[in-house]
Design a protein around this nucleic acid. Structure first.
Length: 153
DNA sequence: GCCAACGTTGGC
DNA sequence: GCCAACGTTGGC
């Protein structure tokens, strides 16, 4: 069992949106970074823990808990000319981009980026490293436990 | 809106 | 295969 942090822009898919979705499940479309794709393809297992992070918004931070609900499969938006995630170079017989389904479990109180930065125990989190832009990053068991404690669970 | 930091592209 | 130019991310 591994743990992950996944960024979502709440204007697109917030933790509330995910909780309101059928089965509390959303397909994690739009990942267009090879490192993030490879995490989904090579390492994610159904049941892995996910920190649901709101990015590019007024109050960036961890907003909820989710879990991996499927193994990786082709992201259909890469083949859709009408989608902002369309990739003209992707071929259906050899998909370039993958996604997993994510099942939202519950909201947490908002653990803001500023608060996370104040925690010495979390200083090594990938998300807190300078210049980090990866939308999917691994989280250690120790970091996960600390965050659960911070969230009040 | 700014801009630092990073990933990708493409000429050579 | 190098690397400059460009585009994107994302906090502020």
């Amino acid at each position: 069992m591994q743990y992950w942090l996944m960024k979502s822009e709440p204007d697109e898919v917030s933790i509330d949106d995910a909780l309101a979705a059928p089965g509390q499940c959303v397909a994690w479309t739009g990942v267009r970074n090879y490192q993030a794709r490879n995490f989904m393809r090579d390492q994610m297992k159904v049941g892995d823990g996910i920190l649901f992070y709101h990015s590019s918004c007024a109050q960036p931070g961890i907003a909820g808990i989710a879990e991996v609900a499927s193994t990786a499969y082709p992201d259909p938006t890469q083949f859709d000319p009408g989608s902002p995630y369309h990739d003209p170079a992707a071929r259906p017989e050899q998909p370039r981009w993958l996604l997993v389904d994510v099942r939202a479990l519950r909201k947490t109180r908002l653990l803001t980026l500023a608060e996370l930065r104040q925690q010495p125990d979390l200083a090594d989190m990938v998300i807190l490293r300078r210049g980090n832009r990866l939308s999917i990053t691994p989280v250690t068991r120790q970091q996960w436990d600390k965050l659960m404690k911070l969230a009040g669970d």
